[in-house]
Every structure is written in C-alpha cells, then in structure tokens.
Design a protein around this nucleic acid. Structure first.
Length: 677
RNA sequence: GCGCCCGUAGCUCAGUAGGAUAGAGCGACGGUUUCCUAAACCGUAGGUCGCAGGUUCGAAUCCUGCCGGGCGUACCA
C-alpha cells in the first residue's frame, strides 16, 4: 500500500534531510485542519530547525526550493512558523481516479503489502451452553473486521474461535445435565414440572431476600443429596443407575427439545452457585468427602478433565461434546446474520488444548519459572502486585489440580507460534482482561514460547469498552439478564422494517424484508464500528437507525442513490461501462467534484489508519465523510442532465463512490449494501 | 493501597508518534423540493478540551500533582 502521504513523506523527508545535512529527518505529513492551507502540510521542518538552532521559515524556504513535486502538487507554500503547505493538482487527482477506475473494483488500485505475515486472530469466543449475548458482539465484529482488513492488506489470516468450553464451565455443564436428568426423571415419575426451570425463576426473584433464599437453597441441596444417593450403585459408584443411561442417550435427543433445557439448567447451576456462597451448606462426594455446596462445580471439573485416565468419564465427554455442537449451531445462526466469517474450520476451543496442559505446567516447572505457592502452581512475572503488595501469581494449576484459562492460553499461544506459524497473534477481548494478557505475554516471553526459530512473534491485545444501556450501566434486559444478540438484531430489523414501510410502502414485500435486514443489522454493526473501540458506548436503536449522521442507513442511502442514478442512466440508454472505459481526462472544475475526487483518492489512507491501530472507526469516519461529500456533489451537480462534456466525469465520480462505499461497507466491515431503500 | 482506562458543546461522540482558528451528529433556531430517492442539502447559535502546575516556538495530545468516574487486583473467564 502506498499513499500520497507516503510519497510526500519520502520526497519531502529527503529534501529536508539534504538541506539540513542529516541522515534522516521525517517530514511529518499531516492533512490540514483547514482547506485554505491546502490538502496536506509538512510539519517536520520546525523540529529540525529547533535541533539546528536555525530559523524554521528560512529552512522551510530552502527545502521548498529543493523540492520537485511537479506532477503531484501546486508550488508548495511556506506558512506560519514553518509549515509547508501542499495542494494537490487537479490533474493528479484526475489521474489517480482514472487509475482506480482502470483497476479491479475489489482492490481500488490498492496494492497488497510486500511483507505478508501469518496473523492469528483470536476473537468472538462464545461460551458453551449459552447463546451469544451483547457481551460477545464487540469481540465478534471487531475481530472480523480486523481479519478482513489484514486479509485485504495481503496477510495470511488464521481465524481462531477460542470457545469457552473447558475450565470450570465444563464441570458446571455436566452438573447442569445432572439436574436436567433428575428433573426429567421426577417429571416422568410424578408429573412434577422441571424443577430447575421453576427454581431458576425463584432464585432470581429471591435475590436479596436472605431467609427465603436460604430455605430454597437448603431444599435444593437436600433433594440433591437424596437424588445422588438414590443413583448410587454399590459396586460401580455413583451415577450408574440413572445419570449414566441419561448421558448415554443424550447425544441422540433432538436439539429443539434439549437445547433450551440445557441453557436453563446451566444458568441454574451458575446462579445456584452464587446464591449458596456463605450459607454453609455442604454436600457429600465420592472422592473428597463432604464439601461446601458452592464448590461442587469446581470439584467435579478436575475429575472430568482427567477423563483420559478414567474411561468412565467418557459418557460425560460425549454429552459435553453434544452440548458444544448445539451451542455452536446457535452461534452460527448469529454469525450468518452478522455477516461474520467464522465457521467450524475456525473452531479451536479451550478443550482443544486440554492434552497439552500438563506439559505446559511441567515445562514451566522444569525451567524453574513455575513454583508451588499455597498449593497452586504459579509463575511470578515481574512487575505485578496483589492488593497486599506481594508478587502477583499467574496461576497455571489450581491447588485442586485443575487447569485454568492461564494454562489454556499458554498452550494456545505455544500452538499458534509453533504449529500455526504465527508472526503475529491478535487477541480481541474486552479491556478488563488487560492484566491477564500482560501477564500472559510476559510469561510467554520468559518461557521463550513467543519465538519460533529465534524470531519473536508479535503479541497484541486489542481491547474494547463495554456496551452500555441508556442508564450508563452495562446493557441488560429488563429481567436483569444479558441481552441476547439474536433479540437485539431482531429488534433492530423490526425497527428498520417499520421505517421502510413508512418511507417506501410501494416496494415489493420481499425487497422490504431484505432492506430491513441490511439496515437493521448494518445499523447495529456500524454503530459499534463508528465508536472508538477503546471507549464504552451507549447503545441506542434510535441513534443507530437515524438517517442523519454517521450511521449505516445514511451510508446505505448514499449508495442506493448512486445505484438509482445508474439504473436511470441505463433506462435512458446510457451505457456507463463503455462511457467510462475509454476515459483519458476528467474535468474536475466544480469545487464539489474536486473535493469528492480528492477524497476518493484517499481511501488507502483510511485503510492504513484503520489497520495501524486496529480501529474500524477510522474507516467509518472516512466513509461518512465520503458520503457527505457525495451528497454535496449530488445536490450541486446534476449527473444525467449534465452537459455532454461534464457527464462522463460525473458518472465516474458516482461509480467510484459506489465502488468505494460498497468495498468499505461490504468487504471490510461486512455490512450489506442495498440497491434501493 | 497498587495498576490500567476515561473526563472534549445541553446530549452522544471524533480528534494523542505535539502543529495554525478543537470537529461531527442529535437537540435548538433559520433556509432549500416544477430538477437523478428530502432516509437529503445549506446556514446560525453553542467550548476556561475535569482542575492546577510543568516541558517548548507551539499542548486536548507529553510530564507531575489533585478532583471525579469506570475496571482490575491468588486459584472465574
């Protein structure tokens, strides 16, 4: 990729260095704040002048005298304390537009990098036994955008969906299945409603009511122990009579029956665990004797994770695998609506690293990096402290022997560098995990796991802020639960549909539906992309679906208007393709034409900026400005009724604007464009 | 306590490898449809860039302190 800025930087930088007698001095090319200063300015002269203790204006004059920007710019002007102002020649802008026009609409005359890397991008990472909620939105779409940008830049991108399917949640999923099993048994035998469904509601309702909550939890615990004892075979151990057969049959059961139940049972387990903290309730276990009821999930996790050593856990593993399948099926439905390019081939969940975990810990021990501390195996990377000012451990194995996300992340990192041959690994997660990743990267460096053949892979944590509700707190549904992504998209599409009905009632129903999909989903994505990734933003359907301002509908509308012109041209017998094909000169004499033309020629700058900091809002800002400039052009410069000498230029501007908007929206942001709205 | 992030117009936000007079949208006020989609365009009003110092030709941007908010801080992810 080579932008005008790069060329100016190079030429002016060299002239500056020569004049000053330095090896190297950056020209510091920036776009001007005000068009009256031209299009670009070079700020580097003043810094060099200071260094040389010389007059900056004089130095700037000397640099300008040396410069030859003949074909690019008008004569540079020295202004203010030592700025060099640069104004692009219309002929240069015209030649750039013709060059873009002559090339592939999917490249828009932007060349791929010559330094292609293998880049692993870790994003989305949904959790097992849950549907995707707003918390997954940003990682999923920002990650997807980063992949699209890097692919466009010419890198080999390896998408990794690091599904949360191992760790303690594994134990909880099985525990959820156990409740489902027992509840179904009671339903069959006594016609009782599924208790976890009833009690889930009750637990939620009782939040804050200590006494009643305690009573309910005690009742649950008592029944739990009874059911567990009743399921005990004196020879084989627990679970052999009822739970075993349940698990065996589980993978065959139809999705629409079990999927909702699993989710509910899993939520039940999670909520119950929270509720019983501090209640002093206990439960007997086969292996560890009597333990606190809240720790049951954590207790069964390492037992089940050990399945390689205990073939009796195979059923649990098969059932869990089925749960994962069901989970991913629901995720793929969401990915498809979002236009996110993730498929089964990108799945590599935490569980995939399970066989490598013991070796991670052993290696760290062998090299002396890890040591036992309070029963857990820990690495103490320098520079991290606990509340008490003690060194903060990066725990790779818990005192009960279970592995946790630190272990998995290290195994994944090692795999990505070693097997996937990553030159760069990008983790797209919310900002709260920043300390974890700082420690992870530090430990990986200490262990040398970030190197392959002596070359260091670049490790990047791309963070983002939270999605907030209108009240400024993290977005939640009325019920207090996380908002499901599916519901969010449904509502956006529904609202978009209402607008289409209002604005364009005569369109065929099928078209309206299609437009509503594109506008609704596009609005949600665009709103996210157009906000600075690092800050929190307030989610508002009204704002994201507004026709004014930096929104998806505004962008899509601009595109649709151009397509409308092109359709109309065709119906008048104008063959756009042939009219544009042989063009050799453009007439950019109208200010709106030149302004739009200049902006079109700068698409690559926006892409470069977006890639440099992994910031999609650089791209949306460019596109918005483009659409605004087009709208100005549109109101001032008739296209189809233009004089014959002007029409080809205007058609070209329309066509390139459409191509650029389509490319940015559809290829890079994964937002659909529409032909009409 | 320590660490990280944030504080910019009434509201929601852009803008940090230091650059000229700090930008949008919403909201407010005013204008533009015999003409390619008015889901649009044009204009006006609105700011001690949290506060106080410092660094320098120049600071929203870098440094220090303070105030206010968010997040994290040993076996969750």
């Amino acid at each position: 990729m080579r932008t005008v800025v790069d060329i100016l930087e190079q030429r002016i930088g060299r002239a500056l260095a020569d004049t000053a007698g330095l090896d190297h001095s950056p020209a510091i090319i920036r776009t001007t704040a005000d068009p009256k200063f031209g299009d670009y300015q070079a700020n580097g002269v003043m810094a060099v002048a200071k260094q040389l203790r010389t007059n900056p204006r004089k130095l700037a004059e000397q640099v300008v005298a040396k410069l030859d920007l003949g074909e690019l710019c008008e004569t540079p002007e020295v202004a203010g304390p030592g700025f060099i102002n640069l104004r692009l020649k219309p002929e240069y802008v015209a030649s750039e537009l013709l060059r873009i026009n002559a090339g592939d609409a999917n490249r828009l005359a932007i060349k791929p990098t010559e330094m292609a890397q293998t880049v692993v991008v870790d994003f989305s990472s949904p959790n097992i036994a849950k549907e995707m909620h707003v918390g997954h939105l940003r990682s999923t779409i920002i990650g997807d955008c980063i992949c699209r940008l890097l692919e466009f830049e010419g890198h080999k991108v390896v998408r990794q969906n690091h599904i949360g399917d191992w760790g303690t949640q594994f134990g909880r999923v099985i525990l959820g299945l156990w409740h489902m099993c027992m509840a179904e048994k009671r339903q069959e035998e006594n016609g009782e409603p599924l208790y976890f469904a009833e009690e889930l509601k009750a637990l939620r309702a009782l939040a804050g009511d200590g006494q009643e909550l305690h009573a309910l939890c005690t009742k649950i615990r008592d029944r739990h122990e009874n059911d567990w004892r009743a399921d005990k075979d004196p020879e084989e151990g627990d679970g052999e009579l009822v739970f075993g057969p349940f698990l065996q049959g589980f993978p065959e059961r139809p999705a629409e029956e079990v999927w909702p139940r699993i989710q509910m049972a899993y939520q039940y387990v999670n909520l119950l665990e929270e509720c019983v903290v501090g209640m002093g309730l206990t439960i007997p276990t086969r292996q560890a004797g009597v333990i606190d009821y809240k720790d049951l999930g954590r207790h069964v996790t390492p037992m089940l994770q050990d399945r390689a050593k205990d073939p009796r856990n195979r059923q649990e593993w098969l059932a869990w695998n089925r749960v994962r399948e069901l989970t991913m099926a629901s995720c793929y439905a969401v990915y498809e609506r979002l236009g996110v390019m993730l498929g089964p081939e990108h799945e590599r969940g935490e569980s995939a690293y399970q066989p490598m975990l013991p070796d991670v810990v052993d290696s760290l021990r062998d090299t002396g990096l890890a040591a036992d501390s309070a029963g857990a195996v820990c690495v103490f990377p320098p520079g991290f402290q606990t509340k008490e000012g003690e060194p903060l451990p990066f725990i790779v194995q818990k005192s009960d022997g279970a592995f946790l996300y630190a272990t998995t992340d290290l195994a994944a990192l090692r795999y990505r560098v070693g097997q996937l041959k990553a030159d760069r690994i990008i983790y797209v997660t919310d900002a709260r995990q920043i300390q974890h990743f700082q420690m992870l990267f530090k430990v990986a460096e200490m262990a040398g796991w970030d190197r392959r053949n002596g070359r260091k892979a670049q490790l990047v944590h791309v963070t983002f802020g939270s999605v907030l509700g209108e009240d400024g707190k993290p977005l939640k549904a009325r019920s207090g639960e996380n908002v499901k992504l599916k519901d969010l998209l449904d509502e956006a599409v529904e609202r978009a549909k209402a607008v289409v009905e209002e604005k364009n009632p005569d369109l065929p129903a099928e078209k309206k539906t299609q437009i509503a999909q594109a506008v609704g989903v596009g609005a949600v994505k665009y709103a996210d992309y157009s906000n600075n990734r690092t800050s929190d933003y307030v989610f508002s359907f009204d704002k994201m679906l507004a026709m004014d301002g930096n929104t998806a509908p505004y962008m899509q509308y601009a595109y649709a208007r151009i397509r409308s012109i092109e359709r109309k041209a065709q119906s008048k017998g104008v063959d756009i393709a042939s009219e544009l094909a042989g063009m050799e000169t453009l007439d950019l004499s109208e200010p709106a034409e030149l302004d739009l033309g200049k902006h079109l020629a700068r698409y690559s700058e926006a892409i470069e900026a977006a890639i440099a900091d992994y910031k999609p809002n650089c791209l949306t800002a460019y596109l918005y400005e483009l659409a605004q400039k087009f709208s100005t052009f549109y109101t001032n410069c008739p296209v189809l009724d233009a004089p014959p000498t002007k029409r080809p230029t205007r058609l070209l501007l329309c066509d390139l604007t459409a191509k650029t908007i389509r490319h940015g929206l559809s290829e890079l942001l994964g937002i659909a464009v529409v032909e009409q709205m």
